[in-house]
């Protein structure tokens, strides 16, 4: 990892040997080291129970790491500081909007607690509501808002205090697919505009790829891989990462270079004439998706092969298909792990 320069007025977050064991003995995190550059958006991605939320809560100050672990903001040790003293903004999965306050009071709350002058509070809250396009909801009660509106209020509330770091814990999980996509675009725009250091937790790989400058893929309380979305997608260090981000096929096949298996993404193979093929399979299912057709093939291996093709022809069940994997995009999991992209 090349250390980047921290832009002025942003906060770099550093984790040193942060492990977390809960009182009941569950080991949520193995010792983790991580550098988040100021102004960067980092996404923690992983299946449920992988420790990504615990890691976020360590940075927030809602949990303390096991002895020996340290959390640094711009080099300053904040490990012992509780969340209320860390000046972070946090967006919760359940939004956690205060039901006893209006939208305006929710957004103003952090400023009120900080004893900011009333006029300034009003100005800042109005600015936030305009930025999030919720100006006309100011006097509403929380229970009168839709899911997407709640999400916007939660974001406005978190950034109103001008936090050093913005922490988002699965902020879109509770929304339906269409809204999720729209808010994803909005959050992306917001983060770029604010230039704030942001850490975003999700189990949705599309969200991670869209938002993250870098993605931290986690598994069983440890980091499996860190890197920009492209690198994670095209050069996963192991089968777990490859499987979790997108679909991969592993076909046992005596390839030209003597590899025991071919590893490739569904879109990285073509249907070719039999004599050019790496292997062939029988169509067991074909799904026409508009821009492409997804084929499920009974191939040479035990697991079915998934293939995306842009061919316009229809495919019949039982039809034999010859497949060639584009040589330049073949994955070699073993070599990648050795090359040391893994932490």
């Amino acid at each position: 990892m090349t250390p980047r320069e921290t832009p002025p007025e942003t906060t770099a977050v550093t984790l040193r040997a942060c492990a977390k064991t809960f009182p009941d003995g569950t080991r949520a995190l193995r010792p983790i080291d991580l550098e988040v550059t100021g102004g960067e958006t980092v996404v923690f991605l992983g299946p449920s129970g992988c420790g990504k939320t615990t890691l976020l809560r360590l940075i927030a100050g809602l949990e303390r790491p096991d002895p020996g672990g340290r959390v640094l903001f711009n080099g300053e040790d904040v490990t012992a500081r509780p969340i209320e003293k860390r000046n972070v903004g946090m967006v919760f999965q359940s939004y956690a909007l205060f039901p006893n306050m209006t939208v305006r009071d929710n957004i103003a709350y952090g400023l009120k607690v900080r004893r900011v002058a009333r006029a300034e509070i009003d100005a800042r809250v109005t600015e936030m509501m305009d930025m999030m396009h919720i100006g006309d909801l100011a006097a509403r009660r929380v229970d009168q808002l839709s899911g997407g509106q709640r999400q916007r209020v939660a974001l406005a509330r978190a950034i109103a205090v001008r936090p050093r770091v913005l922490l988002l814990d699965e902020p879109l999980t509770a929304l339906d697919a269409l809204l999720r996509e729209r808010l994803r675009v909005e959050i992306d725009g917001l983060l770029r505009r604010l230039g704030i250091t942001a850490i975003y937790v999700t189990h949705d790989q599309a969200e991670a790829m869209a938002l993250g400058d870098r993605i931290v893929v986690m598994s069983h309380g440890a980091i499996a891989q860190i890197g920009p979305p492209r690198e994670i997608y095209h050069r996963p260090v192991n089968a777990f990462v490859a499987d979790f981000i997108g679909t991969i096929n592993r076909v046992p096949c005596a390839g030209s270079d003597g590899d025991p298996e071919l590893v490739f993404r569904p879109e990285d193979a073509d249907i070719v004439a039999p004599h050019e093929a790496d292997f062939s399979g029988t169509v067991t299912a074909a799904f026409f998706l508009g821009d492409r057709t997804r084929l499920i093939l009974a191939g040479p291996g035990e697991t079915p092969v998934v293939l995306d093709t842009r061919e316009r022809t229809a495919f019949d069940h039982g039809q034999s298909v010859a497949v060639r994997v584009r040589p330049d995009v073949r994955m070699d999991l073993a070599a990648m792990a050795e090359a040391g992209t893994a932490p």
Binding site: G89, F92, Y109, V113
Partner: peptide, 23 residues
């Protein structure tokens, strides 16, 4: 998360009780 949200916004313990828990 309500309590955690209040704390993340900088509220000390007594304010969390007054502004979030009691309501």
């Amino acid at each position: 998360a309500l309590e955690e949200a209040a704390r993340s916004l900088g509220a000390p313990g007594w304010r969390v009780v007054k502004d979030v828990l009691l309501p």
